[in-house]
């Protein structure tokens, strides 16, 4: 077991005051057999109260609202997480992680690619597909948006961690490997990160296609879903004509 400190903060600034602001966050790490929280705290400001619950995928969510006008919105999630090597036992995954989702529908060419890889186990096949994604994609911040699909990102050959994860998900599901999208923090990465979990031999294993590796240490998981739309770190709506800018910081350090 290793202990990690995490410190996540987002500051949203609005160009003019907004009101009736409703939010639904997933910024507190989840707990599972290889990740327990030793300490955790969440600050949301301004807010009229925050409720902690879990969503349909079992992810912790933090939601609430701020009715009165405000021109900034800050949320800070800090704590210490105890991690074991990445492996999450699960008896029977839902068939939904085998089906294409809105952002991970495979194209004909992706089906061909997935078919070209046959390895002994689902995990080794997924790792081979991850290498393929890593080799065929160029990491370029700003080249895609949150709504970019796997097919669009692959066609332009560039993207960010979310796109790498979506392409790997599309390939794995085409190859009949249950796979899910994961949001979280990574040691040494200043923003939130996205990776993939694949199911093999009664457990979920972590694969990070952006860095082309199977995950062992240093990744703190927030949430998972079929694709990025199922588990955004922050989703909100408000009344007002403001434009917003976001400043996000993440620090993860082994203690």
């Amino acid at each position: 077991m290793k202990r990690y400190l995490y410190n996540y903060q987002t500051i949203l600034r609005f160009s003019s005051p907004v009101s009736r602001h409703f939010f639904r966050l997933r910024c507190v790490p989840c707990e599972n057999s290889c990740q327990q929280l030793h300490k955790q705290a969440l600050f949301v400001h301004p807010s009229d109260g925050v409720t902690h619950e879990t969503d349909t995928w079992g992810n912790p969510i933090q939601y609430g609202n701020r009715i009165d006008p405000h021109d900034s919105f800050v949320f800070v999630s800090i704590g210490e997480a105890d991690l074991s090597p990445y492996q999450l036992p699960d008896k029977e995954p839902t068939p939904l992680f085998l089906l294409p989702s809105k952002l991970t529908t495979a194209t004909d060419s992706m089906v061909e690619i997935a078919q070209a890889f046959t390895q002994k186990s689902a995990l080794s096949q997924a790792c081979a597909l991850s290498t393929w994604v890593y080799q065929h994609m160029h990491y370029q911040p700003g080249s895609t948006q949150s709504s970019t699909t796997a097919a669009e990102a692959l066609a332009q050959g560039k993207g960010v961690c979310q796109d790498y994860a979506h392409i790997l998900l599309a390939l794995c599901r085409t190859a009949h490997i249950p796979a899910r999208y994961v949001n979280g923090f990574m040691e040494g990465e200043g923003a939130t990160h996205a990776w993939v979990e694949v199911y093999d031999q009664s457990a979920w294993w972590g694969i990070d296609p952006t860095n082309n590796r199977q995950i062992e240490w240093g990744y703190i998981k927030l949430s998972h879903g079929r694709d990025a739309e199922d588990c955004p770190v922050n989703r909100g709506v408000f009344t007002g004509t403001a434009t917003q800018t976001a400043e996000i910081r993440v620090i993860v350090e082994e203690l």
Partner: peptide
């Protein structure tokens, strides 16, 4: 519920699902 379903919806009620 724009926080759970279609995010661009202006017809819904945020956090209704909860």
């Amino acid at each position: 519920d724009p926080l759970v379903f279609e995010p661009s919806s202006l017809l819904g009620v945020p956090n209704l699902t909860q």
